[in-house]
Simulated assay, not measured.
Amino acid sequence: MTANPMSRLFRRVFPGRNPLATHGDRIEGAVLALGAVVALLAVPVAAAVGSDIYATHEARVEVEQKSRTQVDAVLLDDTPSMSRGPGGEAVVETTAATASWRMPDGTARRGVVRAPYGAEAGTTLRVWVNLNGDVTEPPMTNQGAAFNAIFSALLLWALIVGAMALLFGLVRFVHMRIRLRWWQLEWELTAPDWTGR
């Protein structure tokens, strides 16, 4: 009758007075227990880091939402036909194009925007601009800030757990090498009695 996985894991971590358990088995168990404890303690640490990142990003969201606005930009020239790669696939979907737009205060601006291939002069595009009227990236949203914070927290926790798993794997590997070396030495002492050589 085989023991369930939890009891096997418990016996691996705490070999107790098992006469077959070596010092290496006890070290392996201690490292496994340490890894489990560190993984559990890493949860609130990762959550705190994620919370800090969210707070930082939340301030950035507020600044960017206030300092960036979307305007209508009108293309001044036709854009070229779509560029295709060796296999006939489109390499990129947009190209640089010159356009003009008006700021909310009515100031006319002109600059380079990203436009689809084959767009004709006079086509209107929505672009994001900063307070100076320069084209910029869209502002970060609250959802984007939350995603970054959650992703960072999970990544930190995964790195800690991965480091503990790597440590356990290294200890197990070294223990196995030592065990195999001892078995080999014992066999070299025992083999002459068994084989008569």
Rank of each mutant, 00 (worst) to 15 (best):
M1S: 00
N4I: 04
S7D: 09
L9F: 07
F14G: 09
F14D: 00
N18Q: 03
L20Y: 00
G24A: 06
D25W: 07
G29N: 07
A33L: 10
V37G: 02
V38T: 07
L41T: 00
A47V: 02
G50T: 06
T56L: 15
T56K: 09
H57F: 13
H57V: 10
V61N: 04
E64I: 08
R68N: 11
R68D: 15
V74Y: 14
V74F: 13
P80T: 00
S83K: 11
R84F: 13
P86F: 13
P86K: 12
G87R: 13
G88M: 04
A97I: 04
T98Q: 13
M103A: 11
T107P: 15
V113N: 00
A119Q: 01
A119T: 07
A121Y: 10
V129F: 03
N130A: 00
N132I: 09
G133W: 02
P138A: 00
A146N: 07
A149Y: 02
A149N: 05
S152K: 06
I160K: 05
F168T: 07
V171N: 01
R172W: 14
F173V: 01
M176G: 14
W182C: 12
W187Y: 08
E188Y: 10
L189E: 14
L189V: 14
T190W: 03
T195Y: 15
G196P: 04
G196T: 01
R197I: 12
